[in-house]
């Protein structure tokens, strides 16, 4: 069953597919770069939406998996291994393992505990990144060689890289769409909706929530591998707690537990940041230097007054 909303999402993806041609025509390669960044964060937000939106787990530590994905690529590259298959495989596998470890402890808890624990473990990984001098420590390190895929795709070619990211974004959206409508997804949403009832009809929440947590972490790890290829630079800042907050904000801004929400949220937030930092209409310094002030005000206003998110404005039935 394909809803109006999902047709709109498909249309957005098709539009994104037309961007490289348009960017080349108007000679604005900068936008290709910006949209690639938007799509990479959208993949991370899609993965977070699976547990935050559909699973009701307020994870304040999702940036951890961006970091692990990034470090998996960066560390292998540092030691001269440039195979994308290995790098990205490690990014996904290591993220899944870390999510399993963090999830095994945190998923048993709920409410404020869950929020603080996911935040704390991510901070632990952040400090770990800072303290390992071998891989750049505090300053991070350059990852000058992009992942190599036996000549299949060339990530040094901006357009090819762009289409690869777009493809992975589309695949992530489709995967989450299937997941949340499967038996597994129904249980996940049931636990969010009414845990006592779900236990009473015979489901133990723990394994389902943990599985979702691991899937989500692995998907975000892949986004991390893409991000480090995009920036060609790896720093512990990938795992900064404000990053986790931004990912959550993308999901809320776009519309929690909707398929198009994470993409819309990532796009609006990152484009807004870009605009605020380069806005020429207002006194430049006041806005550019303190754009986080406006972001903060925007965030508070969205939470207080626009709870349904941008996807709620789209035509079609609310999911």
């Amino acid at each position: 069953m394909i809803t109006t909303r999902n047709w709109i999402l498909v249309a957005i993806l098709l539009l994104l597919g037309a961007v490289p041609a348009a960017a080349a025509y108007f000679e604005q390669p900068f936008y290709l770069d910006l949209l690639r960044r938007v799509m990479i964060f959208a993949i991370a937000a899609v993965s977070l939406n699976l547990i935050l939106g559909y699973g009701g787990m307020v994870s304040f530590g999702h940036a951890a998996y961006l970091g692990i994905g990034g470090y998996a690529v960066g560390i292998l590259a540092h030691h001269g291994i440039h195979s994308g298959w290995l790098q990205w495989g490690l990014a996904i596998g290591a993220s899944a393992l870390v999510a399993l470890a963090i999830g095994a402890i945190s998923v048993r808890t709920s409410g404020i505990y869950f929020i603080m624990i996911t935040l704390a473990f991510t901070q632990m990984l952040y400090y770990l990144g800072i303290s390992i001098e071998e891989y750049g420590g505090d300053d991070g390190m350059r990852v000058p060689v992009r992942s190599q895929f036996s000549g299949l795709v060339d990530l040094n070619d901006g357009t090819q890289f762009y289409f690869l990211v777009l493809g992975i974004l589309a695949a992530s959206l489709f995967l989450v769409h299937r997941l949340v409508n499967s038996r597994f997804g129904m249980v996940l949403q049931a636990i969010r909706s009414n845990e006592a009832r779900t236990r009473a009809i015979g489901f133990s929440p723990y394994p389902y929530r943990l599985a979702a947590f691991v899937i989500s972490g692995a998907m975000c790890g892949l986004a991390g591998a893409l991000l480090v290829n995009h920036t060609a630079y790896l720093t512990p800042e990938f795992m900064n707690w404000t990053r986790s907050g931004e990912l959550m904000f993308m999901v809320i801004l776009g519309g929690i537990a909707t398929s198009a929400g994470p993409l819309l949220g990532a796009a609006v937030l990152l484009l807004l940041e870009d605009v605020l930092q380069g806005w020429s209409l207002l006194p430049r310094e006041a806005v550019r230097d303190h754009w986080q002030l406006y972001l903060g005000i925007f965030l508070v206003l969205v939470v207080l007054f626009a709870r349904r998110g941008l996807a709620g404005l789209l035509p079609g039935k609310n999911e």
């Binding site: 304040f60 404000t242 907050g245 959550m248 972001l295 903060g296 965030l299 508070v300 969205v302 939470v303």
Partner: peptide
Amino acid sequence: VLATFGLI
């Protein structure tokens, strides 16, 4: 979480 993150 989000509103107090904005406050920060």
